[in-house]
Amino acid sequence: MADQIQLRVNGKTVSVTAGTVVAAAVAQAGQTRFRRSVQGEARGPLCGMGICMECRVTINGQAHGRSCQTLCQEAMEVRTDE
């Protein structure tokens, strides 16, 4: 496994160490808002353990991925706010 992984968060390339979760990569990219709630409020991760669903992002085109439970992989495409 490579020590550094490159992925894209909202089109911006981020380099993270292996073992980093997608939520952390999003934070490292400077993005604090992960999604808009049903009434449009800004939301970000809360529980950090895969149960609250506040950290959902689109991963490789698939909406509603739990970013706190997903490890970063090379060339992953992550989009927030979807």
Binding site: T17, G19, V21, A27, R43, G48
Partner: peptide
């Protein structure tokens, strides 16, 4: 899991459970 009790502003990004923040920090947050 952690028990979260609502207070005004608890939904703002930047609010975490202590255990949750620890977990995320261990994985690069």
């Amino acid at each position: 899991r952690e028990l979260f009790l609502p207070f005004p502003g608890w939904t703002l990004p930047g609010n975490f459970g202590p255990g949750g923040l620890q977990s995320l920090a261990k994985h690069g947050w």
